[in-house]
Design a protein around this nucleic acid. Structure first.
Length: 385
RNA sequence: CUCUGUUAACGA
């Protein structure tokens, strides 16, 4: 197991799901018993790649083998459910952890607090923070970073600042993540100058801006209408010795597309490729969207094709963009084809997808299809508005 | 040997 466990972790990190299954068989054949750590590594890997159900099955499997899950097993699964926004299941699991005679750790609390922050339930997040103190776990910089992010989510800048100050008052030293989180909140909630001030503070504290800091600032400038400053900052980033990454370029591509500067956007795309940075699904979706909006479906499909050729998987947003453009131009049948494609890829259409298709069908007078979609949406637990 | 926090895209 000491040889196999790190191997399993490594394979998951590289996204080699099939090889992990193969390795599990090899272990069985050689009579090597998996340990709790083996399962923890597998559960974690499955969750990282979004396979919550498969992870749960591993959890069941390990218990069936007589292995007792430890706090790490629970924390991993808890994190998976929290990330998926399934706090109900997470709470049930927390009960299970306690029933198993285990005590939650600071990570257990941080995971749950982060889960509540992500769904915007700061009341519950706060309550858990108090509970963790009562249980003798002191909130750390990670706890406060989640709380600041949650405050940002509910657009409460004052609250984000309070959490930051409280962190300082507890004698905790904010790290780069904590500063970046606060800076992003300041920028997004209308306090750009405070954001830049904080970057100075951060430097004085001996924490240098990293790529994420720059990306947050560049994106913030783009979104407050300062495209030129954003471009300048990107150049400053390079002169400061930091390499722009895929996200840096994607922010700039998006900003240019929004302003209809598609030529410039393409220039950034080419620059990113020539810097050996592979464009992501987000990058392609932005370009597809820009051409669709312009009414140039031909070019939009050119990008879609390129994306597929490069082996970049389209996601639900990519399909929503295409479906939107097709429905709007009265090509509901073609839109429908994409709808099926997305199901084949295991992507879940959301409320927006259904609405687009229902609207398209209604416009063309296909009431039967529209009604069928409506019921299908209901069956999938999506409530119309 | 395994568990937590920060950045980009659709919005009818």
């Amino acid at each position: 197991p000491f040889t196999y466990n790190p191997l399993i972790t490594g394979l998951f990190a590289k996204g080699f799901l099939k090889k992990v299954e193969a390795l599990q068989l090899v272990m069985e054949n050689e009579g090597i018993m998996p340990t709790v750590v083996t399962y923890n590594a597998m559960i974690h890997g499955l969750l990282q790649s979004g396979h919550v159900e498969a992870a749960r099955l591993k959890f069941v499997e390990m218990r069936a083998m007589g292995l007792l899950p430890d706090v790490i097993t629970y924390n991993s699964l808890l994190n998976g459910y929290c990330k998926a926004g399934n706090l109900k299941e997470a709470l049930w699991l927390l009960g299970d952890l306690r029933r198993a005679g285990l005590a939650p750790t600071i990570l257990t609390y941080n995971i749950l607090i982060d889960g509540y922050c992500r769904i915007g339930d700061l009341e519950e997040a706060r309550r858990l923070k108090e509970e963790m103190v009562e249980q003798g776990c002191l909130p750390d910089v990670c706890t406060y970073t989640s709380l600041m992010n949650g405050s940002h989510k509910v657009r409460n800048l004052a609250m984000a600042r309070e959490f930051f100050d409280e962190m300082l008052s507890k004698g905790l030293q904010p790290d780069c993540f904590a500063y970046n989180t606060r800076i992003r909140a300041e920028l997004a909630l209308g306090a750009a100058s405070k954001a830049f001030q904080l970057r100075e503070v951060m430097m004085l504290e001996g924490i240098s801006s990293d790529t994420v800091t720059y990306n947050i600032l560049i994106d913030g400038l783009c979104k407050t209408g300062n495209l030129k400053d954003a471009v300048d900052l990107q150049m400053k980033m390079v002169s400061d010795g930091l390499q722009p990454d895929c996200i840096t370029y994607t922010c700039l591509i998006h900003a240019h597309c929004e302003r209809g500067l598609l030529r410039e956007a393409r220039k950034y795309f080419n620059k990113m490729v020539s810097n050996r940075l592979p464009p992501s699904a987000v990058t392609y979706t932005i370009l597809i969207h820009a051409y669709c909006r312009k009414g140039n479906l031909y070019s939009a499909y050119g990008w879609f094709r390129k994306m597929l050729e490069q082996g970049v998987e389209p996601n639900e947003i990519t399909y929503n963009v295409l479906i939107h453009a097709l429905c709007r131009t009265g090509r509901t049948q073609l839109a429908y084809r994409h709808f099926h494609e997305m199901l084949e890829r295991g992507l879940m259409p959301n409320k927006y997808t259904y609405t687009l298709l229902i609207d398209g069908n209604c416009r063309e007078g296909n009431w039967a299809d529209a009604m069928r979609l409506y019921f299908e949406m209901h069956q999938n637990g999506i409530h119309p508005d």
